[in-house]
Design a protein around this nucleic acid. Structure first.
Length: 201
DNA sequence: GAGTAGATCCTCT
DNA sequence: GAGGATCTACTCA
């Protein structure tokens, strides 16, 4: 298993990167407790031309400043008063592309994840949906701006190969108020995986 | 199984 | 002062 190189994140096609993130492994390691999961669902946010993005039209505020940071940076923000949403910043510095990680297939540290989520039995809601997976991996706004190549938080590949026809593509979730941007097919997921989020699947 | 309400807080206008 | 890249639980059929 090796960490994805900086060049992986720095490319300019955020859709391509989002698709390639499927099957990769997101790892956190807080205080020696390692938890990880395979990425099975994500959404691309295509910079200043994407109405559903925080950076639409070139908006740049204290909150989304991290989207303008260099590739391979974690962008975490708080939403609906409950959920921490974890994003990966891509493309070059000052270009606000990002990919929202929406669901994981848990691999390591499942008991710890269940503890963080307050669950006694393992079920498919453990890491399903961006809010849930952040809790399961212990990611909070505290991690905003972290590098994704650090020892505590990183994305790696383990040789897992995904065939082209097992990748599903659909419009994004939760962005209905974003005009035609809500229809863009920017969501990528692994077909048939039980951890895919979305109420209607 | 499907639909709806409630939680709950930071950020920008 | 309103709304947001949401999830869960509970109700009703």
């Amino acid at each position: 298993m090796k960490k994805l190189p900086h060049s992986f994140y720095e490319r300019d096609n955020v859709l391509q990167i989002a698709k390639e993130l499927l099957g990769k492994i997101l790892v956190t390691n807080w205080k020696g407790i390692e938890t990880s999961g395979r990425i099975v669902e994500c959404e691309a946010y295509n910079g200043v031309t994407d109405r559903a993005s925080h950076a639409f039209g070139g908006r740049r505020t204290a909150r989304n400043e991290v989207m303008y940071a260099k590739a391979g940076t974690a962008y975490v923000y708080y939403c609906y008063g409950i959920h921490h949403l974890f994003n990966v910043v891509t493309n070059k510095k000052d270009i606000p592309h990002a990919i929202l990680i929406r669901a994981l297939d848990p691999l390591i540290g499942i008991p710890e994840m269940m503890k963080r989520r307050g669950k006694k039995e393992l079920d498919h809601a453990l890491t399903k949906g961006p809010g849930s997976l952040s809790v399961a991996l212990g990611i909070t706004v505290f991690n905003n701006g972290f590098s994704l190549r650090s020892e505590k938080l990183f994305i790696a590949e383990d040789g897992f190969v995904l065939s082209e026809n097992s990748i599903g593509i659909s419009p994004r979730i939760g962005v209905e108020g974003s005009g035609e941007a809500a229809l863009y097919p920017y969501r990528f997921y692994i077909k048939g995986n039980p951890f895919i989020s979305g109420r209607k699947n």
